[in-house]
């Protein structure tokens, strides 16, 4: 009986220590675990033009401009700041205004030059009719406000 208790406390303590150690490591490396930076991050921090980074946020409504030769310009916003993005290539199916997006590239002289654009989708799943009904009843804006507050689509980690 006593040896069992000893083993139990030993295993319990060891697990606690490991969890604490891993927690410390993860918080120390937070900067590199984060997959993308918000427009605010990029505007406020001085980033050198040769550093590759990822920019994440919502595609600003009405900002998408398709130029010829597969070049597309748009703005990525986190509701506080917005960054101009220019990209040449194929966009994913989910890329649309008002939706989440992650662009990889460099930030040079106020323009984010992306060489890869990924779409980010949110956690809401529903048939189109339900989405239409929500939009009509005005509940849609309420819901997306809620999402923005939670920071899920804005690319900001809730602090």
């Amino acid at each position: 009986m006593k040896r069992k208790h000893k083993r139990l406390t030993f295993v319990g303590l060891a697990l606690l220590l490991i969890a604490a150690a891993v927690g410390l490591i993860l918080s120390a490396f937070e900067e590199s675990i984060v997959f993308f930076h918000s427009p605010t991050d990029i505007v406020e921090k001085q980033v050198s033009p040769d550093r590759r980074l990822r920019l994440g946020g919502l595609v600003e409504e009405g900002s998408v401009e398709k130029k010829g030769d597969a070049v597309v310009n748009f703005r990525v916003t986190d509701m506080a700041n917005a960054v101009n993005v220019t990209y040449r290539g194929i966009l994913p199916d989910l890329f649309r205004e008002g939706q989440g997006v992650v662009a990889e590239g460099t930030y040079v002289a106020g323009v984010f030059k992306a060489d890869e654009v990924l779409a980010k989708h949110d956690e809401n799943y529903m048939p189109p009719e339900v989405a239409d009904a929500l939009k009509k009843s005005g509940k849609w804006d309420e819901m997306s406000e809620e999402m923005k507050k939670q920071g899920h689509v804005s690319g900001e980690t809730p602090k």
Binding site: E30, H121, D122
Partner: peptide, 19 residues
């Protein structure tokens, strides 16, 4: 952390956000 993967839809505090 912010990730490309979206947050949970079913097992979360404010109930499932899935039809």
């Amino acid at each position: 952390w912010n990730t490309l993967h979206q947050p949970a839809s079913v097992i979360k505090m404010d109930g499932p956000s899935i039809d």
